[in-house]
C-alpha cells in the first residue's frame, strides 16, 4: 500500500491471535492498512471479520492475553517522529498519551460506552484534563465548546446530566464530543451508528463529516453497512476472517470491485437508486470462527466461484491490480494477467 509523507498511520502485517482451549483463534491474520492525513478510511465486513480487534489493537486496548505481531506506525504530529505502537508497553505512559490524545475512539453503543454513574461532564473532563490542560476551568470551557460543536442544546445542563438522561442520538453526540475534545489527529469510529435508528444515523454521519471538514481529523470508520461506507469513506478496506480482501478508493469499490466477497456484499446491499425489483442476495452461510482454518482463500467455503485445487492450495497474497487497488483472489489475479 502506498505510503508517502501524507501517511500518518500505517499498519503492516498485523496479526492478533488468541490462545483458546479450542485452538489458536486468528482474529487478525496479516492486515495492512494505511491512513493519510484528512482521509477517511472505511473498513467494511460482516460481523466477526476482525474489524474491531484490528482497530482496538492500534490503541493496544485488546486483552493482554492476545498475541500481537506486526507493526503499527504512527507518524506523531506532536513530535514529528514515527512511533511503533505495537512495541510500546501495554498500559504504559507512552501509549496512554496517544490513547484519547492523538488517537480517539468512539464505540457502537453509546449507552454502554459511558459509565452510568458518572456525569457526562465528569467523563469528558477526564479526557481533557489528561490531554489538553491541567486547568479545571479551562477544561470545562473546552468540554462545553465541544458539546456545542456537536450540536447539543444546553451544554451547561448536559454537563451535569447522566448518560441515561440523554436520548440515544444525544449520547452518541456526547461520545463524539468527548473523542474530539482532545483534538485528536485520528478518530477511530467502531460502528458508531449501528445502534441508532435511520434518521439519527444520517444526522450523526453528517455531523462527523462536517466536523472532519472543520478539524481535518483523519478517520477510520468501521461498519458492516456499505451504504454508510459510500457516505463516509475516501478509501475502503474490505475485511473477511482477519484479512483485507480488497482495498480501493470508494468509487472503484462501487463500480469496479473485483473480489467475489466484495461483489457478494454489494449484491446483498439494498440500493435506494435501483427502481427495478433487484433481488437481494444474502451471502450464504455464516462467518466461521477463525480457528484451524484450512489453507488457501478464507472465503473458499462460501465463494460461488471457488475452484477446488486452485483456491484452497496456498494462502493468497494481496495483489496490486491497479494503482491504489489491491485484491486478494487468485481468480482475479489470473484474469488480469490473462489480459482481460
Amino acid at each position: 500500500m502506498i505510503s508517502d509523507e501524507q501517511t500518518i498511520l500505517e499498519v503492516k502485517d498485523l496479526k492478533i491471535h488468541f490462545k483458546l482451549h479450542e485452538g489458536l483463534l486468528k482474529a487478525v491474520d496479516g492486515v495492512d492498512l494505511s491512513l493519510r492525513k484528512k482521509e477517511t478510511l472505511g473498513i467494511v465486513g460482516e460481523s466477526g471479520s476482525g474489524k474491531s480487534v484490528t482497530t482496538q489493537s492500534i490503541l493496544r486496548i485488546i486483552p493482554q492475553t492476545a498475541h500481537l505481531e506486526g507493526e503499527i506506525i504512527l507518524r506523531s504530529e506532536e513530535t514529528g517522529k514515527n512511533i511503533n505502537l505495537a512495541t510500546l508497553p501495554m498500559n504504559g505512559k507512552e501509549i496512554r498519551k496517544i490513547r484519547g490524545g492523538e488517537i480517539s475512539m468512539i464505540f457502537q453503543e453509546p449507552m454502554k460506552a459511558f459509565s452510568p454513574v458518572h456525569t457526562i461532564g465528569n467523563q469528558m473532563m477526564e479526557t481533557v484534563l489528561l490531554h489538553r490542560t491541567k486547568d479545571k476551568n479551562e477544561a470545562k470551557e473546552i468540554v462545553l465548546q465541544s458539546l456545542r460543536e456537536v450540536g447539543m442544546s444546553n451544554p451547561e445542563q448536559r454537563f451535569d446530566e447522566y448518560p441515561h438522561q440523554l436520548s440515544g442520538g444525544m449520547r452518541q453526540r456526547a461520545m463524539i464530543a468527548m473523542a474530539l475534545a482532545s483534538n485528536p489527529a485520528i478518530l477511530i469510529a467502531d460502528e458508531p451508528t449501528t445502534a441508532l435508528d435511520v434518521t439519527l444515523q444520517a444526522q450523526v454521519l453528517e455531523l462527523m463529516n462536517n466536523l472532519k471538514e472543520k478539524t481535518g481529523t483523519s478517520i477510520i470508520f468501521i461498519t458492516h453497512d456499505l451504504g454508510v461506507i459510500a457516505e463516509m469513506s475516501d478509501n475502503v478496506a474490505v475485511m473477511y476472517l482477519g484479512q483485507v480482501m480488497e482495498y480501493t478508493d470508494v468509487d472503484t469499490l462501487f463500480h469496479g470491485a473485483k473480489h467475489p466477497y466484495t461483489l457478494a456484499l454489494l449484491k446483498s446491499m439494498p440500493s435506494v437508486g435501483a427502481a427495478e425489483n433487484k433481488r437481494l442476495e444474502a451471502i450464504e452461510g455464516n462467518v466461521p470462527t477463525p480457528i484451524n482454518l484450512p489453507k488457501g482463500c478464507r472465503f473458499f467455503s462460501r465463494c460461488k466461484l471457488a475452484q477446488d485445487g486452485v483456491c484452497n492450495v496456498q494462502d493468497i497474497p494481496l495483489v496490486k491490480i491497479e494503482d491504489g487497488h489491491y485484491v486478494r483472489c487468485v481468480l482475479v489475479d489470473e484474469k488480469n494477467r490473462g489480459g482481460r
Partner: peptide, 15 residues
C-alpha cells in the same frame, strides 16, 4: 469486561 471500562482505557486513563 464492560464497554465503559474499554472507553476509559481508550481515553488514556491509567489502569
Amino acid at each position: 469486561g464492560k464497554q465503559y471500562v474499554i472507553t476509559a482505557r481508550a481515553k488514556g486513563v491509567a489502569e
